[in-house]
């Protein structure tokens, strides 16, 4: 949708100072090594769950951070794609990569429908509309035959990648998940730094001016919405393959709330922040999973604390801190 636009990027992003650049590169290397070694350090299923939710949070943040649109219905794309992928892998017998394609295509189609309806209203209404639409999709999943209601789709085969590489072992599966995750993050990075991403930022900062430059704000927003839905779908489909089931939990409003929390906690508008937030939230859930104490009390409290005193999130606060500025990170664009 973008490519052919006559305008060049409105503001080139400032080059980071050298300290920040060096730190970034160093950290990136450390993280890559950790990601490669992860299944030998922690339980592989847990590592895969982290990656799925990190991708989900990053895709959500693509919308909120770069267009300012708060979607309260991203569970529909995440959980919907989980159902589509699971159905494609189990009933149609597709290989995992093709099942993922089915999931992403379904999530994109849902995103297009939701987006066309929701971008007719702004701000707070946008949040309520996406929430209502995702609740509608929840009831659809509750009653539709292929989702198997309360049971969900169980024992989904992981299959063989390209029909060749058997993914039933956790190590093989982990590296497949990691590859998909890296591709997803790469797409997000590329998207954010493309002319399309720049235009989105300009619309977020000053919509009237962007419109007066001849940009169709609504179309760009819709494009970002579908893109975000597709990537959320990629994360959801991947999760269905990892855990080998798709259930109603993934389409419920609680899931939409969780992904908002991940982004808010990590730092809205930064690429890394939401992934850090996802890691923290998933770890927290795992720690509390065995106790009687309901996780929602903690997540609710974290929500309130974030909104009251911590609105930039962990990474945002660091970037804005004296140390962060000294090192040249500056405020995230």
């Amino acid at each position: 949708m973008s490519g052919h636009h006559p305008t060049t990027p409105l503001t080139p992003t400032a080059r980071p100072h050298s300290a920040a650049a060096v730190i970034r590169k160093g950290l990136l290397l450390v993280v890559l090594v950790l990601l490669l070694a992860a299944p030998f350090l922690v339980y592989p299923i847990f590592a895969m769950k982290l990656l799925c939710f990190a991708l989900f949070a990053a895709s959500f943040n693509l919308l909120l951070g770069y267009t300012g649109l708060l979607s309260f219905g991203h569970a529909a794309f995440f959980g919907g794609a989980a159902y589509f992928t699971a159905h494609a892998a189990k009933v149609w017998g597709l290989t995992p990569e093709l099942a993922l394609v089915v999931g992403v295509a379904g999530a994109s189609a849902l995103g297009l429908v939701f987006g066309l309806l929701a971008i007719r209203r702004q701000g707070i209404y946008f949040a309520m509309i996406t929430l209502a639409l995702s609740q509608m999709f929840f009831f659809f999943c509750l009653q539709a035959r292929f989702t198997h209601g309360e049971d969900g789709i169980q024992s989904v085969p992981r299959g063989a990648l390209f029909g060749l590489i058997n993914l039933s072992g956790n190590y093989a599966m982990y590296y497949f998940v990691l590859a998909v995750f890296l591709i997803g993050v790469g797409i997000i990075y590329r998207f954010v730094n493309s002319p399309f991403g720049m235009i989105l930022k300009s619309i977020r900062e000053n919509e009237q001016r962007a419109v007066s430059l001849g940009l169709s704000a609504a179309q760009y927003k819709l494009g970002a919405f579908v893109m975000s839905a597709a990537l959320a779908g990629l994360a959801g489909g991947l999760k269905a393959l990892v855990f080998q089931f798709a259930t109603l939990t993934d389409v419920g409003w609680q899931m939409s709330g969780e992904v908002i929390l991940m982004s808010l906690l990590g730092g809205i508008g930064t690429i890394i922040g939401p992934m850090v937030g996802a890691g923290l939230v998933v770890t927290l859930q795992n720690v509390l999973a065995t106790s009687e104490f309901p996780v929602t009390v903690i997540t609710g409290l974290v929500f309130m604390v974030c909104v009251m005193v911590f609105r930039r999130g962990i990474l945002g606060e660091f970037y804005a801190s004296r140390l962060g500025r000294k090192l040249g990170f500056g405020l995230p664009g």
Partner: peptide, 20 residues
């Protein structure tokens, strides 16, 4: 949106406590 997010967190907390 921050008001919405705050009250969402409040709702989660209240419901969680009562469920507990």
């Amino acid at each position: 949106l921050y008001g919405l997010l705050f009250t969402f967190g409040l709702a989660l907390t209240i419901e969680g406590v009562f469920r507990w």
